[in-house]
Design a protein around this nucleic acid. Sequence first.
DNA 1: TTTTTAGAATACAAATTTGTAATATCCACG
DNA 2: CGTGGATATTACAAATTTGTATTCTAAAAA
Lengths: 214, 214
Amino acid sequence: MKRILIIEDDKKLSDGIRLAFHNEYSCSQAYSLQSAKDSFDVRQFDLVLLDINFQDGNGMDYLTEIRRESSVPIIMLTANNMEMDIVSGLELGANDYITKPFSLMVLRARVNVQLREDGHSKDIFKDGDFYFDFSKMEFLHKEKILDLSKTEQRLLRCLTDNKGRVVNRSQLIDEAWQGEFEFVEEHALIVAINRLRKKIDVDNQDLANPYALA
Amino acid sequence: MKRILIIEDDKKLSDGIRLAFHNEYSCSQAYSLQSAKDSFDVRQFDLVLLDINFQDGNGMDYLTEIRRESSVPIIMLTANNMEMDIVSGLELGANDYITKPFSLMVLRARVNVQLREDGHSKDIFKDGDFYFDFSKMEFLHKEKILDLSKTEQRLLRCLTDNKGRVVNRSQLIDEAWQGEFEFVEEHALIVAINRLRKKIDVDNQDLANPYALA
DNA sequence: TTTTTAGAATACAAATTTGTAATATCCACG
DNA sequence: CGTGGATATTACAAATTTGTATTCTAAAAA
């Protein structure tokens, strides 16, 4: 279960969030900036909800501090709906900015967006028995790890980015050899594709017949 | 320059956005769903701004349609600030949802979040002369491409994810060998790190002295 | 049917990557 | 100073990846 750190001095609100997320996420709570710093390492979390106004400091400063050492998704959660606050929050590295009062449903939806593994995000591809996480270099078919070489990964990326489409050769070549293809003959692509197919070993039409005449 | 497709039937607004983005992004405009479908291939864009209410259909349906074939970032741009619309927009695969009226500054900030390459995003690391894009498998040092092997990439990922910190061996081992390390002796890690260092060839303290005793 | 052509499959050598071992270096501690 | 422990470096062989050549197959054209 993914872990969320709620840094929010309004205990009612904080508890409400934790309760609302109870089934989906494992929440930890800090009621002040200092206690957040003392008790938690943001790196241990998959997402941080961060308020701005605290007795003991400014959440925006803490945002900056976090961003110096981590790129954990951060959603600012605040009553300040001043344009400038939103803009600077996002520019300082926040991933989203929600102004109070907000609905827990909407908050949940926005949290889900940050944590999505549903294939709607750029780097995760999900289809049938396949699960590819390009950013983690994790390629699964029915839970089984596919060990792909670098070119295979690049080809696969090009194919999944164009799911349902016929990808022509030059596209695949561009993706896999990025400009260094002058030194290689086109037939290498065929072989590379062939090897990729063998590894993923499917008759999945999308992947098995991935390109057409250039 | 990154390309944005604005699908919005309010021409004033659409033009306003294009104008506001003029210096940063290259915008194309569609004033109806049909013209968007006819004239553009969303795949050619880095981001889509999508309204919901059109004469000729529902933006939400088009969102779903796009998501069947592409994971291009999509920001819904709409007067509907009904909770349920927001929730379902995000669930259907939108990356953000902005309700009209909105400030162009805020819109810009939210667009920038989606397109950020500033190292605040999970998969891009930027520091000094280094630029690593893990999701694209692109590793640069002063514009020069670093050709990293699979384990090197994984180790680097572990190190950049923990920038500024000392990473202990077991962490690196977990990241690079993901559970298959029983068959390998620990010294392999040392050698792998060594090779990585040689490739990135630096005395950058962060990277050159990356781990401590387990 | 035969021919032609594009693509698939196999084989093999060159290049790269990877694990292990052997050796060298560094540094804290006595 | 040395010695011991830890890390660094180098070397080498095994495994993997990759490019090219060759053969095979299938389907369209003649």
